[in-house]
């Protein structure tokens, strides 16, 4: 038996003694609290006696559990189970941290490109990576935690709230991308204007009327927007934003319906059902009236 094994045995024996003393302590505590009551038939119906019994039963289970733990092999297995908790936490933290690092790396890559030449009237391959990266990371790393199956009585409510958080995140990411895309023509026309002014200055043709520059800028900006708005990239981003908005609104309404159910007011869902019935009825009445008029020869 080497030194390590001896040490482990000593710790195991110490733990077994401690658990036994814990079990004894709980038994004594129960006995002390209820020790004064008698054991007659009458007193057995007494609520105090029933409580004592429940405590005794509970303490016995607790004692049994503690005694079980005092067995070295059981203790080892329990400790192994406990080991998995920090491992699980580690896993989550690692994934989140890796995601964050990846995100930061992309930001640095994009930041490095700042100042590079921006080509006027070109919208193919716009660098929206930052939004795509965030979305990718969110979808791969974080979203899964919101999709963990919910349990128990409130599982449906929890699922709805998780979906609301998820759709809100996606909508915000899509909206940011959309807004960024809308900003690009402003950036590009600024660059074009800078070039134009430089050219005018070189020729000594600088205008003294600010309106001339404004007209030049607005025309350039309009041209950039026209190019952007026709591009398939823009249509795709717009479509993503629309879909994300629709899904977020749907999720939000589901949560709202849950809340509003507790109040004596009808929800849109209730009203829509009613409106649909009304619509069908009106249509039937209108058809029947028409048929009646036709049969009368009106």
């Amino acid at each position: 038996m080497d030194q390590d094994q001896k040490k482990e045995t000593a710790i195991g024996s110490l733990f077994a003694q401690w658990t036994k003393s814990q079990a004894d302590l709980w038994e004594d505590m129960i006995r002390m609290q209820f020790g004064m009551s008698d054991a007659s038939e009458k007193s057995r119906k007494n609520p105090l006696h029933q409580t004592q019994k429940a405590y005794e039963s509970g303490s016995k289970i607790l004692g049994a559990l503690i005694s079980t733990l005092s067995e070295p092999e059981n203790l080892e297995s329990a400790l192994k189970g406990m080991d998995s908790l920090p491992e699980f936490m580690m896993h989550i933290t690692q994934q989140a941290y890796e995601g964050y690092l990846e995100f930061q790396k992309k930001i640095v890559e994009i930041a490095a490109k700042i100042g590079q030449h921006t080509e006027a009237y070109k919208f193919e391959g716009i660098d929206q990576n930052i939004f795509k990266v965030w979305r990718d990371i969110y979808e791969k790393e974080f979203r899964q935690y919101l999709n963990v199956p919910q349990l128990g009585l409130n599982r449906f409510h929890q699922e709805r709230i998780a979906r609301l958080i998820d759709t809100l995140n996606i909508f915000q990411a899509s909206l940011n991308e959309f807004i960024y895309m809308f900003y690009i023509p402003i950036e590009k026309s600024g660059a074009v204007m800078q070039e134009k002014i430089e050219q005018l200055a070189e020729k000594g043709e600088i205008h003294d009327n600010f309106k001339e520059y404004y007209n030049m800028w607005i025309k350039t900006l309009e041209g950039h927007y026209m190019t952007l708005l026709k591009s398939p990239e823009y249509a795709e981003v717009m479509n993503n934003t629309i879909n994300a908005l629709v899904q977020y609104r749907e999720a939000k309404q589901e949560v709202l319906y849950d809340i509003l159910k507790e109040f004596p007011i009808p929800t849109n869902k209730d009203m829509d059902e009613l409106y649909n019935d009304l619509y069908i009825l009106k249509k039937k009445v209108s058809d029947l009236s028409r048929k009646l008029e036709e049969s009368r020869g009106v």
């Binding site: 708005l229 026709k230 398939p232 249509a235 795709e236 717009m238 479509n239 629309i242 879909n243 908005l245 629709v246 609104r249 749907e250 849109n268 829509d272």
Partner: peptide, 20 residues
């Protein structure tokens, strides 16, 4: 027309259903 392009390539009609 841009409207033709957008209506064709986006799911704008979903918004009608979402907002009532």
């Amino acid at each position: 027309g841009l409207l033709h392009v957008w209506m064709k390539y986006t799911d704008a009609f979903l918004m009608g259903e979402s907002y009532g």
